[in-house]
Simulated scan of single mutants.
Amino acid sequence: MFFLLSKTLHFLLMPYIWVLLLMFLALFLRSQKWRRISLISSLVILVVLSNPFLSNEAWRAWEVEPMPVKDVVDYDVAVILTGVTSYREDVPDRIHTSKGADRFLHPLMLYRMGKIKKFFVTGGSGYILKDRIPEADQIKKILVLAGVPATDIITESSSRNTRENAQHTADQLRNHPEWKKVLLVTSAFHMRRAAACFKKAGVKADSFTADFYGYERRFTPDELIIPNIAAFSSWHLLIHEVSGFLIYKLLGYC
């Protein structure tokens, strides 16, 4: 039930939906006053959320700062959270990744540097109605293709959200008492919720963030003045994550 509710919330938190709803209200409301308020509100949302500078400031405030690679000590296992691969029925003969592929590419770099001994990849399928190849299995295939021995990769493919990632990781750690030092790897925007869930589950881990959306400040016209559709689109992800974190806190998941 919670999984279905999270998917519904994902849709309702789209700023695009808010703008459409307000524009419809501006067209069909009988009250001239409320029609004007609806129209102005939709324009304000469009202008504010399409500003690259404001978007970047929000990302910089929310994302967890990176740990410098030089500061990474030796870890027994890197726990990689999925959410970065997809499956296409029309192109089924390969693995498809998204921007968040840094979640496994950066740990792979650490593994090559000798800073990580094992990988534990946690995550199943994010689809509601169709069964897909679990994301953990897809990432394992990529790591094996990159030359990592299959014996160094453990997967868990039943998790469907961050809370379950943490719970199943805690179960695995009880089965692997040799994993003393744990490195948690996920996107910078997702680390606040992930780290809190893992702490709640009793997993002691250091955080290693990847996949950043925020960037250095730029005081240029294209950042300060010119609207950008990419900035508007990115707000959906940020709003969704902040809302998810607050809901998890309310429910006692983290």
Results as ranks from 00 to 15, higher is better:
Phe104Met: 09
Leu105Glu: 00
His106Pro: 03
His106Ser: 04
Pro107Gly: 13
Pro107Ser: 13
Leu108Gln: 12
Leu108Lys: 13
Leu108Val: 11
Leu110Gly: 08
Leu110Tyr: 12
Tyr111Cys: 01
Arg112Gly: 04
Arg112Cys: 02
Met113Ser: 10
Met113Arg: 12
Gly114Asp: 15
Lys115Asn: 00
Ile116His: 04
Lys118His: 15
Lys118Trp: 14
Phe119Tyr: 03
Phe119Arg: 01
Phe119Pro: 01
Phe119Gln: 00
Phe120Trp: 06
Val121Thr: 09
Val121Lys: 09
Gly123Cys: 01
Gly123Ala: 03
Gly123His: 04
Gly126Arg: 05
Tyr127Cys: 03
Tyr127Ser: 09
Ile128Leu: 15
Ile128Met: 11
Ile128Cys: 05
Leu129Thr: 11
Leu129Tyr: 15
Leu129Arg: 10
Lys130Arg: 13
Lys130Cys: 03
Asp131Ala: 07
Arg132Cys: 01
Ile133Gln: 05
Glu135Gln: 08
Ala136Arg: 09
Gln138Gly: 01
Gln138Leu: 05
Ile139Glu: 07
Lys140Gln: 08
Lys140Tyr: 07
Lys141Gln: 14
Ile142Arg: 03
Leu143Trp: 15
Leu143Ala: 14
Val144Cys: 10
Gly147Thr: 03
Gly147Ser: 02
Val148Lys: 12
Ala150His: 06
Ala150Ile: 15
Ala150Pro: 04
Ile153Phe: 11
Ile154Leu: 13
Thr155Arg: 08
Glu156Thr: 06
Ser157Tyr: 14
Ser157Met: 13
Ser157Ala: 14
Ser158Trp: 15
Ser158Met: 13
Arg160Cys: 00
Asn161Glu: 08
